[in-house]
Write a protein that binds this DNA or RNA. Structure first.
Lengths: 224, 224
DNA sequence: TCCATTTACGAGGATATCCTCGCATATCTC
DNA sequence: GAGATATGCGAGGATATCCTCGTAAATGGA
């Protein structure tokens, strides 16, 4: 069961890399191939789930020979792990960007920003939610990612509403996380986007934030 | 790929049965064994996902020989299908029961009822949400079940608020469905229940319903 | 008790899947 | 161009998994 630990070179490249046994490519060709593999992996995992996805299909869809695939990802688990870390990194990175622009937003504006953010994330194929749901070997990693996202959301809330307590911000962040997590499943059928449904979601998130961030709301009203 | 179609006897027993090739047991012993298999199947599917679950493990966990398992469920897909229909039947049945007692409830009371309902569903091992998420062969069946649940929720809403339009009730039902679907994942870690989190969920659902059902809210106020 | 039917059982075949291995090719440095 | 390193490739081994099949036990009615 234990995957062989090859010495992972820890040079941080453009795409972040975990120390799971994934071998980092050193030339440009390899890097683009790894990108294609990740893309195909995200697709197949999303369609078939972790157990249902096969390395052969991932190789075929990324136009990679099976041997080459295993050169970069010595294990199916390593590929899933790389996708998870990429997902986590992308989330925290973008949340940080939102936080930087958060001050001065009204709660309802923040709701729109967050919903847009989730739509973006699901438009990218960067997302592998079914994988996240299913793989249990990576439970600790998933918990870690959830924690990071939760803290990111909590930070945004404290920036937006300086009157909120730390505990309350964390609690709200949990609720927000699950509200937002439903967005891709709710609003996207394949690559179609259900606009009226998105409007409903915006309204719901906005309603919740307005209701739970009275201090920020008052600030926004004073400003207008 | 096409599973052999054995002649399914369509005698409706206690546990409803689909025409997927599942052979209905005719004696008590077989019936309890089928129940055990469904139980174990729900567990394993929930833990490993559809692709990750193995018939061998399901057989072992239900203390059933592999041959006996295949007597009642000639295919892994047949077992998954039986679980899905059982889930759908249970949902619609219980929703109908709620609808029968819905008239006179305030929106916030309905919110409590619905959240309790979902907690019940996840306390039973009847639920196999990850399976529902992952299996794509049964996409049409999943859509069918979702439709039934949505209509059930819409019916409840129209009973509760006679001023609501049909279209609006359907739209709200979609949102409610996804809010409620998150309940088990949110509130249950294994078999633990996070009470304060449930309180938050109740408040959120209640807030949403109160906001979207003004007519029913007015009725409730008049009654008090 | 005897028989028909249902249920129990697990070895094993066919297939699928993960992954290895050895060699061929491309790319970089000098 | 020569050597070194990274990358590309796919046949095939080891294993896992789905499912079949033939036989034995249990059950219920006559």
């Amino acid at each position: 069961m234990a995957s062989q630990k090859s010495s992972a070179s820890t040079t941080a490249t453009v795409v972040t890399r975990a120390a799971t046994g994934a071998v980092a490519p050193k030339r440009e060709r390899g890097r683009s191939r790894v990108a294609a593999i990740l893309e195909a992996g995200a697709e197949v995992f999303a369609e078939k789930g972790y157990g249902g996805a096969t390395m052969t299909e991932i190789a075929a869809r990324s136009k990679t020979a099976i041997g080459s695939l295993y050169r970069f990802f010595p294990t199916k688990e390593a590929l899933a792990d790389a996708l998870l870390t990429r997902y986590g990194d992308l989330m925290t990175e973008r949340l940080a960007a939102i936080e930087a622009r958060a001050s001065g937003l009204s709660p309802s504006q923040l709701a729109d920003v967050l919903v847009d953010f989730m739509l973006d994330m699901s438009a990218d194929r960067a997302i592998a939610l079914p994988l996240i749901e299913v793989t249990q070997e990576a439970e600790e990693k998933r918990a870690h990612i959830r924690g990071a996202i939760r803290r990111g959301l909590a930070s945004i809330l404290t920036v937006l509403d300086t009157g909120i307590t730390q505990a309350e911000a964390e609690g709200l962040a949990v609720m927000l996380l699950y509200l937002l997590k439903a967005v891709p499943q709710l609003a996207c059928n394949g690559s179609e986007v259900d606009e009226p449904l998105i409007a409903r979601i915006r309204a719901l998130v906005s309603l919740y934030l307005v209701n739970e961030l009275p201090h920020a709301q008052r600030l926004a009203n004073d400003a207008s």
